[in-house]
Amino acid sequence: MNKKIKLQDLGKKDYKETWDYQEELFKGIVDIKIQNRKENTLVETPNYFLFVEHPHVYTLGKSGDISNLLLSEKQLQDKGATFYKINRGGDITYHGPGQIVGYPILDLENFFTDIHKYLRFLEEVIILTLAEYNITSTRSEGETGVWLDVGTPFARKICAMGVRASRWVTMHGFALNVNANLGYFDNIIPCGIKGKAVTSLQVELGVESVNEEEVKEKIQKHFQQLFEAEFI
């Protein structure tokens, strides 16, 4: 079992380019697994973790409803945003500057074969990271992601999640609002959930800007601890 994870920070990168790159890494792992099964070999599978920041983009998951996008094609162009229907779970979400996006592309057979546990671990990474900023966050029953003040009229989402898994290989991941422009969420019904607000680390802390590199370091630390992994 290979618990080493190749960490790559892609910086600012177009959504489609990043998606294609994810697919390439994902296919590489799946191909090794198919070959291993076919030839009864034990070639080690790699794991990857990508950090990235996207230009303004809306993405709709497999089970999503296009009516949750509240913009026409022209309005998208006017806002400098793009739109993609993609192959992850979940409904619609927004990615953009000031948001930390993490894409773990893991062979879960190197860790544990439980998708439910995998999603809960991703949430826990963010919950532990936010706790370092004295922010209490939690899960919302039946709604993937990380929330604040669940069960109150002030419930708001700070981190969205959506993954794809095949042959125990994962792709896509989480998007944590750090310094994001939350106005872009007004153009969608986030995750298809009406009447729920979104927030960011910057808003919750009441500061001008949060150090994103510091947040990434905390995410890395908690990810390694929970998955008993090592970033390389």
Rank of each mutant, 00 (worst) to 15 (best):
L10F: 07
G11Q: 12
G11K: 12
K13N: 05
Y15L: 03
K16N: 07
K16D: 06
E17W: 03
E23A: 06
L25Q: 00
V30M: 05
K33Y: 04
K33L: 13
K33H: 06
I34Q: 14
N36G: 11
E39T: 09
L42I: 13
E44D: 13
E44V: 14
T45W: 01
N47I: 00
F49T: 01
L50E: 00
F51S: 02
V52M: 03
V52Y: 00
E53C: 09
H54L: 07
H54N: 08
G61D: 06
K62A: 13
G64E: 05
G64V: 06
D65K: 15
S67K: 15
N68D: 14
L69K: 05
L70Q: 12
E73K: 15
K74G: 07
Q75R: 15
Q75A: 14
L76C: 11
D78N: 12
D78W: 06
K79P: 01
G80Q: 09
G80A: 10
G80H: 12
A81H: 07
A81N: 09
F83C: 08
Y84H: 14
Y84P: 07
R88C: 07
R88M: 07
I92F: 09
I92Y: 05
I92P: 03
Y94A: 01
H95L: 10
H95F: 09
H95I: 07
G96D: 03
P97R: 13
I100F: 06
I100G: 01
V101A: 03
V101S: 02
L108Q: 05
F111T: 04
F112A: 09
D114G: 12
I115E: 04
K117M: 12
L119H: 03
L119V: 15
F121I: 11
L122S: 05
E123G: 06
V125T: 09
I126K: 06
A131E: 15
E132R: 14
I135A: 07
S140R: 11
D149R: 12
P153A: 11
F154G: 05
A155F: 03
R156Q: 13
I158T: 04
A160R: 02
G162Y: 02
V163I: 15
V163Q: 03
V163M: 04
R164F: 07
A165I: 13
G173Q: 03
F174D: 01
N177K: 06
V178I: 13
N179A: 13
N179H: 12
A180Y: 04
N181I: 08
G183K: 15
G183A: 15
F185W: 10
D186I: 11
N187V: 07
G192C: 09
G192Q: 06
I193F: 08
I193L: 14
K194V: 10
L201M: 13
V203T: 14
L205K: 14
V207P: 11
E212L: 11
E212C: 07
E213F: 10
E213L: 12
V215E: 02
E217L: 14
E217W: 08
I219C: 05
I219W: 02
Q220I: 14
K221D: 07
F223L: 08
F223H: 03
L226T: 08
F227D: 01
E228D: 14
A229P: 02
